[in-house]
Design a protein around this nucleic acid. Structure first.
Lengths: 64, 64
DNA sequence: TACTTTTGTAAAGTACACTTTACATAAAAT
DNA sequence: ATTTTATGTAAAGTGTACTTTACAAAAGTA
């Protein structure tokens, strides 16, 4: 699964730390998601969706 | 988080077992999701979205 | 009623989402 | 050049998504 979190975050002039605090996860979690080390939980994806005002399907791309 | 999985599944004349096999999880996992015992992973949500041809946001409802 | 299918649920184990602490590097600012 | 800010990453621990096995109860069917 790929995602556009880094682009969305930088477009909004946020650091990983900023985004982490808003979403309610650790900075390392944001980094891992951006780097594709693991996928977020559904609740975390929903929080990002709400923040960036984009449906989950326009932020995360499930290949296969 | 609430969801419409049970309604979608029964509307499609599927048993929990049927749905589990199609999605690639155990029957107990389908039962737990329908019963709200836990939320699916993002990949599992995407598979359901593809099967039922509905965006994740129309199947799962994140209540803050 | 008896039989079969479907659903509910429990226990114990595995995999992964996520945490904290910590440190190293890169980039930006002074 | 030096300090500050932002990012990358690793280790060890916690919580939860999910598994298998197993059994009981509900619901559908003969």
């Amino acid at each position: 699964m790929k995602n556009k979190i880094r682009e969305l975050r930088t477009a909004g002039n946020m650091t990983q730390e900023d985004l982490a605090e808003i979403i309610g996860v650790s900075r390392q979690t944001i980094n891992a998601i951006e780097k594709g080390k693991f996928d977020p939980s559904l609740p975390t994806a929903f929080k990002m969706s709400k923040l960036f005002k984009l449906p989950i399907e326009q932020m995360f791309f499930f290949d296969e």
